[in-house]
């Protein structure tokens, strides 16, 4: 993402009369603002390609091991709470919507609308992380974090885990297969953790953007940064849409 120099000055311009030819944010090596915005947007898309491939490695691993250790992945998946997962999906989809609205506000020069949209996006993002941490706490309590005193009890003796058993009536797994639930949880924590890391970075940038947007930085023509951040946020949303399906939904039977 290219940094935009001297955006803040744009805030004080009342009209675009004097700066029509050379707006202050036009970097010296570009011919026009369109070229600059085009280049930045394209760069953001290429960055998202690298992100796709980065998560791609994890998705590949998940598909392979689900194929190999199907019973373990089913039992592991039953430990996840679909209600929390659905709630989080809704939260994230709505945050994507508020982000899209933020981009629209920036494009049409609505400063207060932009600040409101970005703030809502930030709150929803924090809400997502809050729910995720409740889920993580539950896993830690049950010793389902791989590597740290990983416990097989829920899988060797499902009846001991009453809440889950009453819903799914899982049969006990053989010891060998039960041990492979650790692979499931490794991938669960890696994928959701990597996703959460992206959320945290996104929330940090959101805070910065709200700060700048209040001064009118993005509503005087130079909207590239908001648009590119929007792309990032929607990408994170898409990753979650797949994580929700793969981790929570497809192994319920």
């Amino acid at each position: 993402m290219p940094d935009s120099t001297a955006i803040a000055h744009g805030a004080h311009e009342t009209g675009s009369n004097t700066h029509d030819e050379h707006p202050p944010y036009l970097r010296h090596h570009f011919e026009s603002t369109e070229q600059q915005a085009d280049a930045a947007g394209f760069a953001m898309w290429l960055f998202l390609l690298t992100e796709v491939m980065f998560f791609g490695g994890l998705f590949t691993a998940y598909l392979i091991y689900r194929n190999w250790y199907y019973p373990a992945f089913v039992s592991g998946s039953h430990q996840l709470n679909v209600v929390w997962g659905t709630l989080n999906t809704l939260v994230l989809i709505i945050s994507s919507f508020t982000m899209a609205m933020g981009v629209w506000c920036a494009e049409t020069g609505r400063r207060r609308g932009l600040v409101l949209s970005l703030s809502l996006t930030l709150i929803l993002g924090l809400g997502f992380l809050g729910i995720k941490s409740i889920e993580y706490a539950e896993k830690i309590e049950k010793h389902h974090v791989p590597g740290f005193h990983y416990s097989l009890q829920s899988f060797l003796d499902p009846q001991s885990d009453r809440a889950v058993f009453s819903e799914y009536h899982d049969k006990p797994l053989m010891l060998d297969m039960a041990r492979h639930t650790e692979v499931y949880f490794s991938l669960y924590f890696l994928m959701t953790g990597m996703h959460a890391l992206h959320m945290i970075i996104g929330i940090g940038i959101l805070g910065f953007m709200i700060f700048r947007a209040r001064a009118g930085a993005y509503t005087s023509g130079h909207v590239t940064f908001v648009e590119n951040f929007g792309l990032y946020w929607h990408f994170v949303d898409i990753i979650w849409i797949y994580l929700f399906a793969l981790l929570y939904l497809i192994s319920r039977h």
Partner: peptide
């Protein structure tokens, strides 16, 4: 990016013992 994630997995396997490449755990 694919080698980046592979290296991250090796690092996590070494430090906290996740089981993605570890045959003992089914990796």
């Amino acid at each position: 990016p694919v080698v980046a994630i592979a290296i991250v997995l090796v690092a996590l396997e070494r430090t906290i013992g996740i089981g993605v490449f570890d045959p003992a755990k089914g990796g």
